[in-house]
Design a binder for these strands. Structure first.
Lengths: 312, 312
DNA sequence: TTGTAAGCGTTATCAG
DNA sequence: CTGATAACGCTTACAA
């Protein structure tokens, strides 16, 4: 292009305030306008916002933008969002599937769109035609490690507070808990399991229930950051009443865990890594990667801070 | 449409796996595909993720999706993102402007796109052609209230830890601090101001500096949640060394503030409300609202929890 | 260098 | 109810 002409063009662009329409642009040459979609539970939960941030960052490095949408564990909303996103022809989709959703239903919806599942694999009631990439945490291993740690401190009655077992991660973590007790030759007292609480308020109530049992647990395992916060609230209230200490190990690290009166021992992992690896895998697929569906499992690590080392 | 024909159509849709292309759809009838853009500092910061979540929720109620992008306070990146989003013809843009950006430059970029500024007003070095809507917190009032509270406890030397004064909210909060001291007839000791720290590590270091002065402050005011966390780390370390208590009031509430060994007194506000009101205003504009540019200021509130009531 | 035409996937309009 | 046609704003190709 000649320099003189170019200048004249730029001049006119400025004069008319012309802005290229990237929608039309991408429509023309087939590929979508450099967009990824992310469907998660709740963007306000630091676990999810870390995933979103990391995915957004990977996308940004490649000039892509990320549309993030919260489905609040509602399969109906999830379906709507997935449908909306695929209709917009996002180049790829990162999906933290909602509890109870059947993703065989989504096979049709997702046909033609690259998808990577994060944190939880797709749930298929019916046999699915398609196999998906998935990036997970080592839920079983982490929960097992945390439980073993409590057992090693001498605890025999370990209360468990977890989300509904319909949730993949909750079920896996419960399995880890059971495996650790079995390996130690301990019976599982089913009365010590409280599977259902989804937010901190419910976890707080469940904790009070457990500790009010005739034969209460001497230690607690909480299966995610929301539930740890709820349990901590309950423990703080009881401690104010002069109750004796209860050990606590929580799945998920969280900010200020180390500054609490009794610093919280946690099963730590890098939740941002879920988003990062997921996005990278998605880009690899977009670039033509033809490997069979991947199942990436990220490690967890026990961080001893005090609350997990309380004696029975 | 006849029922029989409709059935035949749906059948064919399923058979061919047809998915409507919403990009082409919106191209056809002029309006963009029901999308809002949000440019913020860092999605991983709970202050911002609360904004994003609320905006996303308001958008979702109206069938819109939200593209969220973090600019990390980099004016260049902000400009890129704004340009990218307007090129995609988002219907509206929510903007938390980056520190140091000159938004007169963006006037051209933003022409033809509805914009609402959040948390900070646009900065114009040159005179701007356009006036923008803006939703802010009562930064001056909040910081003033927090400082007054410390003064009322008898504190005369109050250290201040804030982000760079180039940042609108930081400058306003410093102004509130100065106003409170002036009203109380107290001199401002400039050596007690540490304006610059942007993350918790820097705030931690600044706190150690302040408390190591020959004549250290007996109280601290931290100007945002990141800085409060840093200061708390420093105070916890000093307390472990047997140092005597320092009062602390922090701008922004944060999770677990009430469960720390010394529960943290904060200047609370509803950061989600910034996103909610901003998005609602944007939709009002899209619906044809022609009122002059709005300036909405959200209230703050002092929450006394203990750390702000430590005596000098 | 400039101009013209076709087509991306829709939808609106207007015959048949 | 079916079918043809034009247009949204852009890119690509080819001709003038």
């Amino acid at each position: 292009v000649g320099a003189a002409t170019a200048a004249r063009v730029h001049e006119t662009i400025a004069a008319l305030g012309f802005r290229r329409n990237d929608l039309a642009r991408s429509l023309r040459h087939g590929r979508s306008s450099a967009t990824l979609g992310l469907v998660i539970g709740d963007l306000a939960n630091p676990f999810y916002s870390a995933i979103a941030r990391a995915a957004e960052q990977v996308a940004g490095e490649r000039g892509y933008l990320l549309i993030t949408a919260s489905c609040e564990e509602d399969p109906g909303r999830e379906r709507e969002l997935v449908s909306n996103l695929t209709s917009r022809r996002v180049d790829g989709l990162l999906l933290v599937p909602a509890t109870g959703a059947d993703h065989a239903d989504l096979d049709a919806e997702l046909a033609g769109t690259r998808v990577v599942f994060l944190d939880r694999p797709p749930a298929h009631r019916a046999a699915s035609q398609r196999r998906y990439d998935v990036v997970l945490l080592d839920n079983v291993g982490g929960a097992r490690r945390g439980t073993e740690h409590l057992v090693a401190q001498g605890h025999r009655r370990i209360g468990l507070i977890g989300d509904t077992p319909a949730l993949f991660t909750a079920a896996e973590r419960v399995a880890g808990y059971r495996a650790a007790l079995a390996a130690a030759g301990l019976e599982v007292d089913e009365r010590l399991l409280r599977l259902g609480p989804h937010d901190d308020a419910a976890a707080e109530a469940a904790t009070h229930e457990l500790l009010s049992l005739p034969d209460p647990p001497s230690a607690l395992l909480t299966l995610n950051n929301r539930l740890s916060v709820g349990a901590l609230r309950a423990l703080a209230a009881r401690r104010a009443d002069g109750a004796r200490g209860v050990a606590l190990v929580g799945f998920d690290d969280f900010e200020l865990a180390d500054l609490l009166p009794l610093a919280v021992t946690v099963i730590r992992h890098d939740s941002a890594e879920l988003g990062r690896r997921g996005a990278e895998l998605l880009f690899a697929r977009l670039a033509g990667d033809q490997r069979p569906p991947q199942r990436i499992v990220l490690p967890t690590e026990l961080v001893e801070r005090g609350s997990g080392e309380v004696a029975p």
